[in-house]
Design a protein around this nucleic acid. Sequence first.
DNA 1: CAATACACGATAAATCCAGTGGACATTTAC
DNA 2: GTAAATGTCCACTGGATTTATCGTGTATTG
Lengths: 150, 150
Amino acid sequence: MITQKMKYALKALLVLGDEAAKDQPHPLTIEEIAKRSGTPKRFLEHILLEVRNAGVISSIRGRSGGYSLLKRPAEISISELLRTIDGPIAPLPCLSRRAYQRCEDCSDEATCRIRKVFAEVFWSYLVIIDSLTLEDMLRSGAVAEQVIGA
Amino acid sequence: MITQKMKYALKALLVLGDEAAKDQPHPLTIEEIAKRSGTPKRFLEHILLEVRNAGVISSIRGRSGGYSLLKRPAEISISELLRTIDGPIAPLPCLSRRAYQRCEDCSDEATCRIRKVFAEVFWSYLVIIDSLTLEDMLRSGAVAEQVIGA
DNA sequence: CAATACACGATAAATCCAGTGGACATTTAC
DNA sequence: GTAAATGTCCACTGGATTTATCGTGTATTG
């Protein structure tokens, strides 16, 4: 299960992606994004900050400030966002590349049967999710207007 | 990430699977399983109970009691165990078959772009993990003796 | 310089995770 | 039949994580 926070992050990116697709895109304020995505404003604040620090969006401060996409939707990886917001996606700490941690109770990784089996499943899974981008999400709704919580 | 509890459950099933493969398999006591798998005994108690209630293993009470596999390893699904121990494996509650729950903040599932994209990823993932059984795990270690925490 | 916006840290309630403890029920060995 | 070994069940706890909210600070612009 992905967290609520991750869902909010995705909704926010969808809002920003939709905006970026317009003729004259403007930076959107937290308030505006919160309204359009149905996210608690003060919570969204923290989320957008994390996403920004990950280099996915940019912020402008002051009077006519707000947030906008920093990269093209096709370059924004969903799995990277998952790692940013929810942490490692590997099923075991000893299978995570960027957050590797030896299992406390494991004497030999090379022969661990749990690790071995989950490694295979995980690699297959990675191929699928690593290829997913914000563009895939933006396109997948195509027809209907998607406002709050849609 | 799978929970520690799930790891313990898997280790216990590996121990029971190894035992079942012997010439004269005996039921193993909680204490014995705990020792061989490196699991806290009182905690393992809860875990084995859940696994038993799921119909995967059987228990015999009394003096010479213990636990043993109820099905053949090839019939014990890892994904079912995951669902039993860790709960739903779907990325969103609205994508879980057995634990379906409408997303509070979702007005229309049919057009939800988050749901749509994760559904595709999830179905692909399910194909992989649903095919995994205890037998795959038992076979994957083949060579080395696997005792505590191996 | 004041209004508007993002930035950042503290705090808090609810839930989940990992584990422990005690009392009770069942079976077998003697 | 009784004691000992074993599984069963319920309650509880300490710590971490999740899901926020609040107050305050800082930058920008009209």
